[in-house]
Amino acid sequence: MDIYKRNNVTILGQGVQPMIFAHGFGCGQQMWRYIWPAFEKTHKIVLFDYVGSGGSDNTAYNPERYGNLNGYAQDVLDICNALDLRDCVFVGHSVSSVIGLLASVKEPERFDSLVMVGPSARYIDEAGYFGGFSQADIEELLDTMDKNYIGWANFLGPAIMKNDERPELAGELTDSFCSTDPIIARQFAQATFLSDNRTDLANVKHRALILQCSNDLIAPVEVGEYIHKQMPESVYRLMQATGHCPHLSAPDETVRLIREFLS
């Protein structure tokens, strides 16, 4: 099994300590393009796509495995193993924060610290817990995804990356751009939004940074505060950035806070 090909692994940077960037539900490693260049001098940058996302090898997709976030965590561990990575800084967006957390509990020696961008341990509300969504909301989301598959080819067709400052990236990104198989994307949505990882939070042994956006619909402030409370050793930073993708909308603030945490 060629993990490089399977997970479309990209290795960049001149540093020694590995820094793994893991994308969330919806896209691929391109999501990090404003962030990783800030760390290429100091770290070994590892970018990848989960099987079924981005430019990964979709033939390796197994619905039994990826119906569970632990299957995605195994992707992270497979990459660590293939590259023989140790003491990694793991930067995960959204559901990847939890995927990285699961991986860090299983093989602690691989990790040094976790950076969780917009994490949530449980999306659906229940008595005594605020997750931000009702079961009906999530079902409507799955329906919305289904409806967008009609125009899917158009939606996810190859795109030319506009990146005037880093023209060297243009070619590499063209084909692997966010191409997600509709059935896989729907299962990823299910695995993500129906998961409940609240009891896993207390198992974390590593330093962790929680980057919480203001006004984040997907991971509201209450959810970030809940995670911080369950992980008393974690560092919690409420960002000025709004929305769920600070690495796209506020890369400067995101980079600054990660740097602060790592130094």
Partner: peptide, 13 residues
């Protein structure tokens, strides 16, 4: 709500 999630995870990126 569902469209908001879709907006954040797909549309906006």
């Amino acid at each position: 709500v569902a469209s908001r999630i879709f907006y954040q995870t797909h549309f906006f990126p």
